[in-house]
Each structure stands twice: as C-alpha cells, then as structure tokens.
C-alpha cells in the first residue's frame, strides 16, 4: 500500500490498483501527477487497470483533470473505473467524463462490485 497527501493506493490481487481519495481531498495538478506515479509504482512498474474511489472528494482542478487524460496517464492506466457517491463526487466525475477526451476506457460507477466487474473485462 502507498499513501500520498490525498490518496491511498493498493494492488488488488484480482489484477487492478485501487486508488482511494481521502475525505475532503482537493485534487490539484501535482496531486494528479503524483497519483499516476504512485499507481505505476504499486502496479510494479507496469500498465494496469485502476479503480478510483472518489466518493469523498471535495474538488478537482482543471489541471488535475488534464493530467488524468494525458499521454502519461494512458501509459499508466489501461482502464479506469470511477466510483462516485456524494453529489459532489458525482458532479466532478461527470465533468471529468464528459468534458475530456479519454485515451483509455473510462466509466463512472455508484457500485464498487459493478466497477470491479467492468474493470476486469478490460485488458490489463
């Protein structure tokens, strides 16, 4: 497991990395970069499927969103499932999904199991 300022990362034996945003996390560009680097490290320096739990997030900047759709992000992540729950995370998730061009499969989920099932249908 790996912990950064706003997120914890752990490798799931089913073949993906689970990234959980801290309560009230305010995600900026540098946090996003750090999150991607951490994901890469936790996955054992290889590309992986990622489940991002952002149900407790408070905000996410434009720079952070752009970092998550960058070429570097596509190098790190093969598919991204995003768990949303609070009305705030729902807004942020929808903004992220609809306002950006994604290079890898990306989808929003209210349910963790459904998210995992979908993730596993994607290549690692």
């Amino acid at each position: 497991m790996l912990q950064t300022r706003i997120c914890s990362f752990e490798s799931d034996p089913r073949g993906f990395v689970r990234a959980t945003m801290s309560r009230g996390a305010e995600l900026e560009g540098r946090d996003a970069r750090e999150a991607l680097e951490s994901t890469w490290a936790v996955a054992g320096d290889q590309r992986t499927r990622v489940l991002v739990d952002m149900r407790l997030i408070r905000s996410e900047t434009r720079e952070a969103q752009q970092e998550f759709v960058s070429d570097y992000s596509a190098t790190v992540c093969s598919a991204v499932g995003i768990l949303i729950g609070s009305p705030v995370s729902r807004v942020i998730g929808n903004f992220f999904l609809r306002l950006n061009k994604h290079q890898v499969p990306t989808k929003l989920f209210n349910d963790g199991d459904a998210a995992v099932s979908w993730l596993l249908t994607n290549d690692p």
Binding site: L56, R58, S86, P87, V88, S89, R90, F95
Partner: peptide
C-alpha cells in the same frame, strides 16, 4: 464547498468547475 458534500456543495462544485 463544505464537508457535507451534499447537493448544495454539488451545485457549488459544478459552478466552480
């Protein structure tokens, strides 16, 4: 945006974004 992360916060988040 308060810690409540409720609907009003969601509206605020949306407008902020």
């Amino acid at each position: 945006v308060s810690d409540a992360l409720d609907t009003v916060d969601a509206i605020a988040t949306g407008i902020n974004m």
